[in-house]
Simulated scan of single mutants.
Amino acid sequence: MSVRPLLLRSALATAAGAALFLLAAPAPPASADPSDTVTIGSVGRIAEDGTVTLSGTYRCADSTGPVFVSSSVSQSSPLLRHGIGGTRAVCDGVEHTWENTGKPGSDVLEPGQAHVEATLMELSPEGGLPLPLIHAAAWKDVTLTKG
């Protein structure tokens, strides 16, 4: 048997395997609408018990899965971020407000400057598994106040 038929069979087997893989692989998530937005308010609050409240606005036009506004805050180190709740979003093209609360721990955050990140994220059911699809994200320096 010559080498040429073996190489041809090997190439065909490789191509067939690659084609099957591509058919089985989930499609990448659709891209978000460029008009989707999320904003962060200039002031956050720290309650007496250490609970932090952050707020802002969002707008999203369309979704196929559930959408949430998540937020996090850092103060003493940009490497140490504290998740502050999550709000279910309504994607109807209208601007809505969001408010998240969370308690990162006692005496972790203090009144003063802090850096907040907010993300408008969908759990997109592309390919059978819910995959994260970022609709919008924002970063802002805010003032944390007692109250």
Rank of each mutant, 00 (worst) to 15 (best):
Tyr58Asn: 09
Pro34His: 03
Ala61Thr: 14
Pro66Ala: 14
Val142Ile: 15
Gly102His: 09
Ser77His: 11
Ser2Met: 08
Glu117His: 09
Ser42Trp: 12
Val38Asn: 00
Thr64Phe: 08
Ala27Glu: 15
Gly50Glu: 02
Arg45Cys: 02
Thr143Asp: 14
Cys60Leu: 09
Pro34Phe: 00
Ser72Thr: 05
Arg88His: 11
Gly41Lys: 09
Thr119His: 05
Ile84Glu: 04
Thr37Ile: 12
Gly56Asn: 08
Pro130Thr: 11
Gln113Glu: 06
Gly112Thr: 13
Ala18Phe: 07
Ala47Phe: 10
Ala16Arg: 00
Ala13Asn: 05
Val3Tyr: 10
Ala24Met: 00
Ser42Pro: 13
Thr64Ser: 15
Gly128Ala: 03
Gly65Glu: 07
Gly147Trp: 14
Asp92Val: 08
Val108Cys: 06
Thr97Leu: 04
Gly86Lys: 01
Thr119Ser: 06
Gly102Met: 07
Ala27Tyr: 11
Leu129Ser: 04
Glu95Tyr: 06
Glu117Pro: 08
Pro78Ser: 11
Leu120Ala: 03
Ser72Lys: 09
Gln113Val: 06
Ser74Tyr: 05
Arg88Asp: 11
Leu120Phe: 00
Phe21Ser: 02
Asp107Tyr: 08
Glu48Gln: 13
Glu126Ser: 15
Gly56Met: 03
Glu95Asn: 01
Ser2Phe: 11
Gly85Ser: 02
Val73Ser: 00
Asp141Arg: 15
Asp62Lys: 15
Asp36Met: 05
Ala137Gln: 10
Ser76Gly: 13
Ala114Gln: 09
Val73Arg: 04
Trp139Met: 05
Arg59Ser: 03
Gly93Arg: 04
Leu123Asn: 12
Thr143Gln: 10
Tyr58Gln: 10
Val38Asp: 00
Gly128Gln: 05
Gly44Glu: 01
Asp107Cys: 06
Ala16Ile: 02
Pro130His: 07
Thr37Tyr: 13
Ala136Met: 10
Gly56Ala: 06
Ser76Asn: 13
Leu23Glu: 04
Ile40Arg: 07
Leu131Arg: 12
Leu123Arg: 07
Leu22Ile: 01
Leu120Thr: 05
Arg9Ser: 14
Thr64Asp: 14
Leu109Pro: 15
Thr53Val: 03
Glu126Phe: 10
Thr97Pro: 02
Thr39Gln: 02
Val94Thr: 15
Thr57Gln: 01
Val94Arg: 14
Ser71Cys: 12
Gly105Pro: 05
Ala136Lys: 09
Met1Asn: 02
Ala138Asn: 08
Arg81Val: 15
Leu54Asp: 08
Gly85Glu: 04
Asn100Phe: 01
Thr53Leu: 08
Ala24Asn: 01
Leu120Lys: 03
Leu131Ala: 12
Asp92His: 09
Ser71Val: 08
Asn100Glu: 01
Ala137His: 09
Ser42Gln: 14
Pro66Thr: 14
Thr145Asp: 05
Ala15Phe: 03
Leu54Val: 07
Gly44Cys: 01
